[in-house]
Design a protein around this nucleic acid. Structure first.
Lengths: 124, 124
DNA sequence: AGGTTGCATCAACGAACGTCAATACAAGCC
DNA sequence: GGCTTGTATTGACGTTCGTTGATGCAACCT
């Protein structure tokens, strides 16, 4: 089950850490980044991710997340799947329950991408 | 025209720089952040933002961006509007042409939000 | 004034998204 | 085995999104 995420953040390929302002961005990298940002662009998924990331142990059981929302269980499962396909989280079944945790590398690369290389115009 | 952006990044309110893993995130902040991430979650808007951010002068005329895409002019205008409403860019009319630039504070706050406060579980 | 160019807005269409009830699958318990 | 609980998948629905042609507005130029 945990083999399904798409390795969306291009960390094995060539352009590892280009940054928003470095260049006009090639199409493939744009598509990957857009997918991750789209996964973050929903309040429910953002709360889910925050709920997982803020946990001390780093892992949260689905049985704890589902009742925290006013949504059905399939809906929560669907949002978790999208976060996983974006490469932001991963999961593992442990007996009856399934636990999710954050893949910190994905978040760090996103943060690095968004960080402007100092004041624009200084290099002119 | 440039008064229309929504000041989406909550920099004037209380919780300025909480971070993903600090707490379960209150609803209002989640909605604001989701809106910004959703604005970034489209390949066209990501390319537009990169095109603006990578410019030395920091400003790009719409007349330069529109022909760079295989899309109609209203579509580009629409995407620029969404980026502006998300608080990521701003614009100004100068004679016949309209110039766009990046609001770096928005990107920096997003990056800070995504940066994990070191290894989860260390604070336990 | 009239004409032209650059950009935004409007109205409408198909596609993608978020949600749910129903169902299926996995694991434990009797 | 059958029953119960936890989670994922399916199929369907209404809503939102991305795109377009048509139109409107602003600024320049004769």
């Amino acid at each position: 089950m945990s083999k399904q995420e798409l390795e969306v953040i291009g960390q094995g390929a060539d352009g590892c850490c280009d940054g928003l302002a470095s260049a006009p961005l090639d199409d493939e990298r744009v598509a990957q980044l857009a997918k991750v940002f789209k996964a973050l662009g929903d309040p429910v998924r953002l709360r889910l991710l925050s709920m997982i990331a803020s946990r001390e142990g780093g892992e949260v059981c689905v049985c704890e997340m589902t009742p925290a929302f006013d949504l059905s269980q399939p809906t929560i499962s669907h949002h978790l799947k999208l976060l996983r396909q974006a490469g932001l989280i991963d999961c593992e079944r442990r007996g009856t329950w399934v636990y999710y945790w954050v893949l910190p590398g994905a978040l760090d690369q996103l943060a690095a991408f968004l960080t402007m290389p100092q004041t624009a115009g200084a290099t002119a």
